[in-house]
């Protein structure tokens, strides 16, 4: 099981070993420099964000104490409400599709075949490529008149699409880029799980005359369940956080049709210089992410794949 899985499973601070207690204080010195930097660039920003969110704070302008005013405004802001719904819609699609393709790909790459190493490397390239660079190429491919994707649709006898240039197709199109980009990570996480599965149950199933599908359904899937849940959690968090490709390709457009929470947040902070309001968005966004992660963990303790 991966570290993340192990960590997610146990209650925090349950596993402090008493064995080397006398050394523990010395080992703490190894952590001090990193801890200082983490406090400065990670923890201080968290706390400062909460502080800023209590103000009407304009970049380079006035600031006025509001208390919870920004949060009240946020909960009645229809534009933010739509951003939340869009983000959830985007997330559902951008989790489901990579999970299905990623598991299928992992099963394929788990088998031995010629040139497997090369094929796997090519398969994970999208995940490592610079998101901005890739997003620019997709933008060119989505061009309604000159883009290569519409030419492909024509060859298949399908009508051309407006891709990211129409409100009703923009989110599924952006999900397409996300699927292309992040299916490899799901594949790797599941592949790691497959590599750790025991061989015995399969041999027993073979002797009992089980079909390949039965073996997959009743042996592989249940054993793989913890890895699937970890991949699901990681994918959900990453899909919620998606920013680079959306910003480069549409900047939230057309209109506000692809304005997710992250884009809304960016625009409030660095286009409208409304950093107090944007900080409130950060706090709410963080709460949404933690709530969904907790929900998935809870599901994990309830659901069995058998």
């Amino acid at each position: 099981m991966t570290r993340e899985a192990a960590l997610l499973e146990q209650p925090v601070a349950a596993a402090t070993a008493p064995r080397r207690r006398n050394y523990a204080r010395h080992y703490a010195w190894f952590v001090v420099p990193a801890a200082a930097v983490i406090v400065a660039v990670i923890i201080f920003p968290w706390l400062f964000t909460v502080y800023v969110s209590a103000f009407d704070w304009r970049l380079g302008g006035e600031r006025r104490f509001l208390g919870l005013g920004n949060y009240e405004a946020l909960f009645t802001d229809a534009r933010f409400g739509w951003a939340v719904l869009r983000t959830l819609f985007y997330t559902v699609l951008a989790v489901a599709a990579p999970m299905v393709f990623g598991i299928a790909a992992a099963l394929a790459f788990h088998r031995k075949f010629p040139l497997r190493g090369l094929a796997r490397t090519v398969f994970i390239l999208p995940m490592m490529a610079t998101p901005v660079a890739v997003a620019l190429v997709w933008t060119m491919m989505f061009h309604p008149q000159l883009g290569v994707l519409n030419w492909l649709l024509m060859q298949l006898g399908l009508p051309p699409s407006m891709w990211v240039y129409a409100a009703d197709t923009v989110i599924p199109t952006l999900v397409l880029v996300e699927v292309w980009h992040w299916t490899p990570l799901v594949m790797l996480l599941i592949l790691g799980g497959l590599a750790s599965l025991p061989v015995d149950p399969y041999e027993a199933a073979k002797i009992d005359g089980a079909s390949a599908w039965q073996a997959f359904r009743h042996i592989t899937l249940p054993l793989l369940a913890p890895f699937i849940v970890v991949a699901l959690i990681i994918r959900t968090i990453d899909a919620l956080k998606a920013f680079d490709t959306i910003y480069v390709i549409t900047q939230g457009g057309p209109g506000q049709a692809s304005e997710t929470i992250n884009i809304f947040l960016y625009l409030q902070a660095f286009a409208f210089y409304n950093v107090g309001y944007a900080s409130a968005v950060v706090v709410v966004f963080f709460a949404i992410i933690m709530a969904l992660a907790a929900l998935l963990l809870w599901t994990r303790s309830r659901v069995r794949f058998t």
Partner: peptide, 20 residues
């Protein structure tokens, strides 16, 4: 485990939220 969990939460937080 507490330090490791802190690192995990840092990873979960959207990068954009550190920027303000």
């Amino acid at each position: 485990t507490r330090a490791a969990a802190l690192i995990l939460i840092a990873r979960i937080t959207p990068g954009l939220s550190y920027l303000i």
